[in-house]
Design a protein around this nucleic acid. Structure first.
Lengths: 153, 153
DNA sequence: TAAAATTATGTGTATATACTCCTATATAAA
DNA sequence: TTTATATAGGAGTATATACACATAATTTTA
């Protein structure tokens, strides 16, 4: 256990704790708040923005298929879509196979997406300016690699 | 808007959508599930593990101070600690300044931390094996940089 | 010292996340 | 064709997250 079980006062160490899960969650909290704030004028959050983009590109799509694509638990996606359906952003309709449900972006959903897009661009640009394009590309690739490690079980 | 507003069928594009928020959240979902699964025998999740480590190192600490250190909303931290207090992992006691509350890891909390530590090490090692030490260091640094960008407002 | 401003925290509400168990439906096997 | 199995999704429960608002206590200011 070395230095972890000893109750030393070393506050600065906290910022460099090397737990990948912790650091990833910490960065996600900060970045999510950043995007959510930038997107606020459009009335949606970054999670909803991402789902609208995904639906625009791959929709209509089945819940389970979409969930797998975006590495989101099926039940999580369902609950997120439930909110968006109430807001009129998406449509969920049963398929011929009566077990399935097709998810589609609605007209109002597309309108909100159009409104949100420039706001998202601004957020994205701010980060790109500060981080640099190449560094971001490496980061995105590393995040993908992390997903592969996590799912290789 | 270019290719985003056109309902083209290009499912593979989804995996490379360049929204930093989306990719970060996606990776965090996968990695959090990974750590949570590895830590399950100890009965805690990676969020709780991180909080126990933090408290072991810097505790006793005030709620707001800890929240700032770990880039977590004050109210989020309060709610997380509430659960851990019910489980007996932490103690929350009022300070001399009667507005404040000191948070401390308990004896049972330390015991759980000791039990969880080797499990966490295994999770960490698996990722390190696959990613390599240098790549991970770069990744951690980039996550820190992201936090700085997000908070520079 | 009394009033104003600041600070530390709690509460209400809402979204985000995912595990476990359950139901309905479809497909495969006997 | 009946039975067994696999699949798609929903519901219950619990943690994680954070914004807006409220409260109590302290500090600053007039």
């Amino acid at each position: 256990m070395s230095d972890i079980t000893e109750s030393q006062q070393m506050p600065d160490f906290l910022c460099c704790v090397d737990c990948i899960g912790f650091n990833l969650r910490k960065a996600t909290r900060a970045i999510t708040q950043f995007y959510d704030e930038m997107l606020r004028p459009a009335g949606i959050r970054v999670t909803q923005y991402s789902l609208l983009v995904a639906l625009k590109i791959v929709g209509p799509v089945l819940v389970t298929d979409l969930a797998e694509k975006i590495v989101m638990d099926r039940t999580t996606l369902s609950r997120n879509l439930e909110v968006m359906e109430k807001q009129g952003l998406v449509n969920v309709a049963p398929g011929e196979d009566r077990r399935t449900r097709w998810v589609t972006i609605t007209e109002p959903g597309s309108a909100v997406l159009l409104e949100a897009y420039p706001l998202w661009q601004q957020a994205q640009a701010k980060i790109r300016e500060s981080m640099g394009e190449e560094r971001l590309q490496v980061l995105m690739a590393d995040l993908s690699a992390l997903i592969d490690v996590a799912q290789a079980r």
